[in-house]
Design a protein around this nucleic acid. Structure first.
Lengths: 375, 375
DNA sequence: GAAATAGTGTCTGTTAGACATTATTTC
DNA sequence: GAAATAATGTCTAACAGACACTATTTC
């Protein structure tokens, strides 16, 4: 096959599509400006010649583009799916104790086939005149009403048959939403949206040797629990107190579980890192895999890039910050060491918590400079 | 908008396409098995009900899928582009000195519009019955003849207008090929393929405050140099000696440069991390951005996950390994510290280098167990 | 005063950086 | 013996883990 990109030579390019079908296919002005960022933050600069060079058929670029035909080979739909994380705390029975905080993810119950009744990540199609990032931001806004958050592209999933209807790839994103009142939007599906508490734990670990190579498999259990989902908008909209706590109602808990295997294969020279859904109960499509990859990315970024600060409200105590770290990493941290490391990332304020049943704690805010330098 | 995925409700779904147009759109059997990995390593497990549930229109899943219509909204083409890295050394004038090693990337000169005459990453379209990973592996094989390598998905690029012809997204991959003889394939474009030495250096750094936020911009200079490209297949196929060195011919050097800006914006809560091509001379499309992201990912993985071992041949000296680290990270490392850290990753052999003009050096091989545990 | 959290001090073992020293081969 | 690299030793500063201890508020 040829190395040419997007000329479709190997997939047939002669049969034209009805021009009607192409009305969304933008052909921007490219006289002197190549791949623009369009809309967002400035255009990319480019020095290539302004279209005077002629190709093998003697055409200038302008002539080439005017005659260009998209061809009728198959194209996939591309969706943007969102793994929206937050950390929130439950109300504690004992008025003196601090609430336990847990990592949560937003899911939506499917009302139609396929995976009818299963829970899925919010998402939607990327439209012709937007980037995948913009589609993700749009979905997030529509789903949670939140606009200014941390958003990161995770991975593009393209397994054959991952959507039984048609060829659909999905570009997965992770979003971090802080733990103040989250107003899950009153879209036409808001009654089917719910926050799920999430655990993702290593269940087992196996190493296998085979002819000069090693296969290392790790099994993780992904468990998602929602309290009071299905009770409609009220649940999702109730939101949290200013301290990010909410009461839970154990009556109608929903529990979804999946086993995700991560398999590292290393034979001579080759190396693959595959995720596989070994068991899945209640999650739609390959979303268990997306959530698993999102958590692993989140943990990595929290440890390396202090990403947890994105989950904090304006003012917070260092213990709250530590709890967020602990909820995400799913392990306990030592207080003294944690405070040493957190110290350069935050700034003292003169405010303190009050009436907490114990010694008040100083409130901090994110430091303006010292974090977020993602290497 | 609705949260429904892939039903196209917001983009119109009533107008059917000619069935001819859909012959590539697989509709796998989903009676009891959801999103399969198809082909590769096992099917994903799934417990959802086997299609007896009925949706709002009273249809079972089977009925739904039979009636399902892909709709005629616009779909993008999706390409897989490859940033193929290797490290190779030039012949040194002084017989005693060790050759300098440099990081290289494979580029292909475009023979058609757009970007006629510019250099591009090898790549090709993802086909209907393969994953993006498979498309990337296929391209790599076609381009270099190499099959068993390290391959990692990097990022999906979807800027509007990034391809002037039509709507094309690109899923970028990074591949690591070891430094033994690389046989760049005799495809119809092989005469236009060449390895480019690569440097990627921080040029400047600026911080700017604006209303409660900080913008941190880093400018990088990407410089690609090829010696003797354009001399046809011979150049690309000549390959390297067993020690990964080759002679260079300074006569017809090609130099491409680009300035890539990475901009970290942090306003209250929000946070973005954008790459922008500020200047571009000789690279097609947004490929300067892809190469920049690939190097940053590579550096991160080399530091954290010892990925450089993938670039080594069967037997190598610790100094060679250190040189590969240094070429990738673009900084010098201390020998003693390096050897301490490398020691658990490699295994001694009883072989030594010979006739090198100085003390022989022990040869090592990759350890079977102790590396590649990508966290 | 009991219960709880807030906040600090300090010991210790590990590790990265820096530099120095010795060893060995080829020509 | 000169030139080069190979290989190891050791000092130090920084840092993470571990644990103990003091402080302060609410009820």
């Amino acid at each position: 096959m040829t190395q040419e990109r997007a000329e479709g030579s190997s997939l047939g390019k002669e049969n034209g599509l009805d021009p009607e079908k192409r009305n969304g296919a933008e052909k921007p002005d490219h006289s002197g400006n190549g791949s623009g960022k369009s809309g967002r933050s400035g255009e990319d600069a480019d020095k290539r010649s302004p279209g005077t060079a002629r190709d093998a058929d003697g055409r200038t670029e302008e002539e080439f583009l005017a005659a260009y035909d998209v061809g009728d080979y198959e194209r996939p739909s591309v969706a943007a799916d969102m793994v929206i994380f937050t950390v929130a705390g439950d109300k504690e029975a004992n008025y003196r104790k601090l609430p336990k905080r847990s990592l949560r993810v937003l899911l939506i119950r499917r009302g139609g086939h396929p995976y009818l009744g299963s829970w899925a990540l919010p998402g939607g199609f990327v439209r012709p005149n937007e980037t995948a990032d913009q589609a993700a931001a749009r979905e997030l806004r529509e789903e949670t009403g939140v606009d200014r958050v941390y958003l990161e592209q995770l991975h593009t999933f393209s397994d054959v048959g991952r959507d039984p209807r048609t060829w659909v790839m999905s570009c997965a994103y992770m979003a971090l939403v802080d733990s103040r009142g989250l107003d899950v939007r009153a879209g036409d599906d808001a009654d089917r949206a719910a926050w799920f508490e999430l655990t993702y734990r290593l269940q087992g670990d196996s190493r296998e040797r085979l002819g000069g190579g090693v296969v290392h498999t790790r099994r993780y259990e992904l468990r998602l629990t929602s309290f009071g989902a299905g009770s409609g908008e009220a649940e999702a909209r109730r939101g949290n107190g200013a301290d990010g706590t909410e009461s839970t109602d154990e009556a109608d808990a929903i529990e979804l579980t999946a086993i995700v295997e991560r398999r590292l294969t290393r034979t001579n020279g080759a190396s693959t890192d595959e995720y596989r859904i070994a068991d899945n109960d209640g999650l739609a499509f390959d979303h268990a895999k997306m959530i698993a990859m999102a958590i692993e990315r989140l943990r990595m970024r929290v440890e390396r890039d202090e990403l947890a600060l994105h989950l904090m409200p304006e003012r917070f105590t260092l213990t709250q910050l530590q709890q967020v770290y602990e909820a995400i990493l799913d392990r306990e941290l030592l207080k003294a060491a944690f405070r040493r490391k957190a110290e350069p990332l935050v700034e003292k304020t003169d405010e303190y918590t009050e009436h907490a049943g114990h010694r008040p704690s100083r409130l901090y805010r994110r430091s303006r400079e010292e974090w977020g330098d993602y290497r």
